[in-house]
């Protein structure tokens, strides 16, 4: 099995004025295709920093990152943008949907930046299919402010899926949701994972982490625990 994500001794140092913050201090990590990984750890331990590097939103200060075999350090800004567009999907704690823009159009957004332009009808069809995958086909015309938090997060997941990425990155996706809605989101994640999408998710909640197959714990910028989760929780059918 060839790894989707391969980190070798990755460091991230933030230079803010005089103080240097060494947020990630040498992470070596391999994630195989189809894994569902949960990252836990205390606040400030470097989880989001690591996620930003994995998401090609930021570059490591030192060390190597290979995404699907490509050395990310060799790519320019446009190359990174294309990776984000085609191979990665993001889900954020704060949903980050475009306001006053329908769910459908939010989901269509990543297709706007595809290299090979898709006809409007195809875009629509793909966006609707992504919304159906997360169980929101009937809310396509709603604006974000007409949707519940859980529904907004599902629109964000549909947006992350629409370009058929290899990896879904989620930084505290259930951080703003109640526990029951969180379970619903985990159900969607598990269904996606079963179709072969690799998922890396940061969470503070131990019970949410149990929906994953593998658990990493970070502390002070390094991975201190890396264990498979034998008894994997199932969100089950709705």
């Amino acid at each position: 099995m060839n790894p989707v994500i391969q980190l070798t001794d990755v460091h991230k140092i933030y230079r803010t004025g005089e103080v240097n913050v060494h947020a990630v201090r040498g992470v070596t990590l391999t994630i195989a295709r189809g894994e569902f990984v949960a990252i836990m750890g205390a606040s400030g331990s470097g989880k989001s920093t690591l996620m930003n590097i994995l998401g090609c939103l930021d570059r490591p200060t030192r060390g190597q990152y290979r995404l699907d075999g490509t050395a990310v350090a060799d790519l320019d800004g446009d190359g990174l943008a294309d990776l984000r567009n085609r191979k990665l999907g993001f889900v954020f704690q704060g949903f980050n949907l475009l306001p006053r823009t329908s769910a459908l159009e939010n989901v269509e957004l990543p297709m706007m930046y595809l290299h090979e332009h898709l006809p409007a009808a195809t875009q629509r069809e793909r966006a609707l299919r992504a919304l159906a995958t997360v169980g929101l086909a009937d809310r396509a015309r709603h604006d974000p402010n007409q949707l519940s938090g859980g529904q907004q997060q599902r629109v964000a997941i549909a947006r992350a899926l629409v370009n058929a990425p290899m990896v879904l990155l989620a930084d505290e996706p259930t951080g703003n949701l109640d526990s029951q809605t969180s379970v619903e989101i985990m159900r969607v994640f598990q269904q996606l994972n079963e179709t072969g999408i690799t998922i890396v998710m940061v969470t503070h909640e131990a019970d949410i982490a149990t929906y994953a197959q593998r658990r990493l714990v970070m502390s002070d910028g390094v991975v201190v625990t890396d264990e498979p989760l034998a008894r994997r929780a199932t969100a089950g059918a709705p």
């Binding site: 984000r84 085609r86 980050n96 957004l109 990543p110 930046y113």
Partner: peptide, 10 residues
């Protein structure tokens, strides 16, 4: 930020 995250080039 959202547009950049989903793959917009500069």
């Amino acid at each position: 930020g959202i547009r950049l995250a989903v793959g917009a080039r500069r």
